[in-house]
Amino acid sequence: MSDRQLADWRNHALNLESEVNKVVVGQQTPIRLITTSIFARGHVLLEGDVGVGKTTLLRAFTRGIGGGYQRIEGTIDLMPNDLVYHTYLGEDGKPHVSAGPLLMSGENLSVFFFNEINRARPQVHSLLLRVMAERSLSAFNSEHYFPHMIVFADRNQVEKEETFEIPSAARDRFMMEIPIVVPNDDAIMEALVFDTKFHNVDALVNTVQADVLQFDQLNAFSGVVQSSVEASETLKKYALNLWKATKSPLDYGVKVSGVDMNRLVLSGASPRGMSMMLRAARVNAWLNERTAVLPEDIHAVFHSTVAHRLVFSPVYEMRRTEIAREMLAGIINAVAAP
């Protein structure tokens, strides 16, 4: 693919970002990270309180990239089959089976949103994780494929009652965990409350230009981005040092206030995690019109691709978010390149 085509796609990507930024205000960083994950073909865990605009954000992206959008709410009585089908009695009085959210859009499914994933049982997690890893599902004696699907799952870190913590192996399947927080700009906060255009979500999402990208071409183009953007030896060494630092931060002089660093990290980032980090960094380099990855590209995605993969001692789990933030910032400050 020529440089011109790379540039054309970049323009489309930036146009999509700009469209989404119009309807979801004050979320430039999460929007850039979601754009990155779309082009890196990685699943995303969204972290944030209720009512901060996660669903609107995803619907706006889905409209921009085209394809099917499906959503399911995580509840304690949700079973795996609820994702695949549901049964009902038809008008003819006979039982009927119809496709569940996973199958409803067929191969055109582009965004699957699992709201409050930590309220669902581990069996449901298992099914979803298989679908995420293999993008396929066996049901009704046949194999169903979702080649263009990206899963966005949401979890609320504040409420812990009646929830099932997502195990580290499951978290590792997500390319990124992106925090969505309420913007702290007074003007934006005021607009969100008083500007009536934000009150009708359907109308708001419809203002996003449709099909800015072609969802069914993203897989192919993602491969092109990954092969076009180089990573120098120095950059590889830097990434490896970052990886080692996530495993033994103390070796790099990284400390977190009020934490015994010898006991903190049970497991650092996984090989899959670091590979996903590099995929995302390459996309970030491409979005910034670079032909090679710089340390700054890694920094842009480091926290969102690594923080949720770290396994801490249980005693520190309750403070995971702040500890991970401080530790990863310390790693960036401690590891030099070149």
């Binding site: 180089e230 120098s232 950059l235 032909t291 090679a292 990855v293 710089l294 390149a337 070149p338």
Partner: peptide, 11 residues
């Protein structure tokens, strides 16, 4: 300069 020398020779 560092970018050109260490990371992106084309820049």
């Amino acid at each position: 300069l560092s970018r050109q020398v260490y990371f992106e020779p084309n820049s």
